[in-house]
Design a protein around this nucleic acid. Structure first.
Lengths: 250, 250
DNA sequence: AAAATAGTGTCTATGAGACACTATAGT
DNA sequence: ACTATAGTGTCTCATAGACACTATTTT
């Protein structure tokens, strides 16, 4: 990004006299959808709200942005403190600011999505305040719209605020970017088979893909490279393990 | 979007006791890039800052979001009051929130881009505080990065704050969405020739396109339809005029 | 040997690019 | 008639999908 523009003497004088309390201000929060793929379904981490408003409803991990904190940093702080994950793929999604989206006061939410291998969720599942919900997408392609979240019994969960809309945007963005960005691998462990990668793509896109064409596209993309190793403990011929290419080929 | 979630009695009690001044809050602004294509170049409306900080530098039209105002509404208000345009294509782009991006105080900017036919700029050009700058994109494809703005003599303009970054994001988004969204027409008058549409695409993408393939793709897309009319006052065979399709074909 | 999935070779359908040609306006 | 651009028909090439086949592991 651009360096901070140097202040002029006039700016310095202006700033000395400036009072930041002159205008009413909204609250600004970040909300993060921590997404993975497991068991042929899209999954997202939800937290039960322990305080009013909307106590008991399920919400994305979120928090208010601190005054001296970058937006991305706020999202990573939320991921670290509320979901216990660090160093994951993270991208800004959209900013939601309808005046009545939060009953407390005006809260503008800068939303993010983060992608992880399902194994990262394992340590969380013990807590009752956490839930790894299944996403149910009621539309095809990149049509968009709210999505619903279900628990392990298939019962629909009551989501807080506009979080069903936010999750709809997450799925739409994932479907749109999957084919021309390095997203799919982020949902898998460091070493993965082509079949596993194809399953991830199929779950995200919500439709089956052609095996031959998928293999060709992935190998030709230069985004992954073979490791020479093979998967272990499978009931059939083991597939070769791939990893993210160190340097993306041109 | 989702309807507002009904308040529970507990929520009502919580809200009666809630003090919105408990946490320090950043300022939230919208900045809008009003973009068109003219003379084979991308153009954007800039305003000279009349007040400190950074007085005299060129900035995107912007303003602070009011407490009861939706983000999109704030962007439309800025377009109306500072650029004199209404009813144009408008889309949220990205939210910039680096803590030091504005020297006054913490200002988080939700940025938008708007697309217009160049004729909409005609009435503005008289004012010295307005300037329709030419964008100079120093990268290819969707690589991204800041872009520079130049005046009619080709001299580079000093942009305020991080607006060179914002404009870079605008160009990147336009290039990414042009092929599978109804964007190109928004930069043209209501009736346009296929050649004019191709020129718009070429200017946005920064590279020449194949004429035959472009015609086929556009006609097959179902996004435009022929009017039966022809262009007037040209020195050669007149081309047919097209318009945006009333109902997008499946 | 049987079962199951990995991985390869080849044919076909589709769409983009290239190119040649015809059509129609103004001068 | 000449010039310039609009618009069409056809060939080629690249890529996705379909399908058949071979390969390699466990039981």
């Amino acid at each position: 990004m651009s360096p901070r523009v140097p202040e002029t003497p006039e700016d310095a004088a202006f700033l000395a006299a400036y009072s930041p309390a002159a205008f009413p201000r909204p609250s600004v929060a970040v909300d993060v959808a921590l997404v993975t793929v497991h068991g042929g379904r899209l999954r997202v981490l939800l937290l039960a709200r322990s305080e009013a408003p909307q106590r008991g409803r399920w919400a994305l991990p979120g928090g208010f942005v601190r005054l001296d904190e970058d937006l991305d940093a706020a999202a990573r702080r939320v991921l670290s403190t509320k979901a216990g994950v660090e160093g994951v793929y993270l991208e800004q999604l959209y900013t939601f600011g309808s005046p009545d989206r939060d009953p407390r006061t005006r809260v503008i939410s800068v939303t993010y999505y983060a992608l992880v291998d399902h194994a990262r969720f394992a340590r969380l599942s013990a807590t009752s305040a956490h839930l790894v919900a299944t996403l149910d997408v009621p539309w095809e392609g990149e049509e968009g719209g709210p999505v619903s979240a279900r628990d392990e019994h298939g019962d629909e969960l009551a989501l807080a605020f506009d979080h069903a809309d936010i999750l709809g945007h997450v799925v739409k963005r994932l479907r749109g970017k999957l084919d021309y960005a390095a997203l799919g691998f982020q949902l898998l462990p460091p070493r993965f088979t082509l079949r596993a990668l194809q399953t991830v793509h199929e779950v995200v896109l919500g439709r089956p893909l052609n095996k031959d064409s998928f293999r060709r596209r992935m190998l030709a993309s230069g985004r992954i490279e073979p490791t020479g190793e093979q998967e272990q403990d499978v009931l059939h011929r083991p597939a070769e393990l791939f990893r993210i290419a160190r340097k993306s080929a041109v």
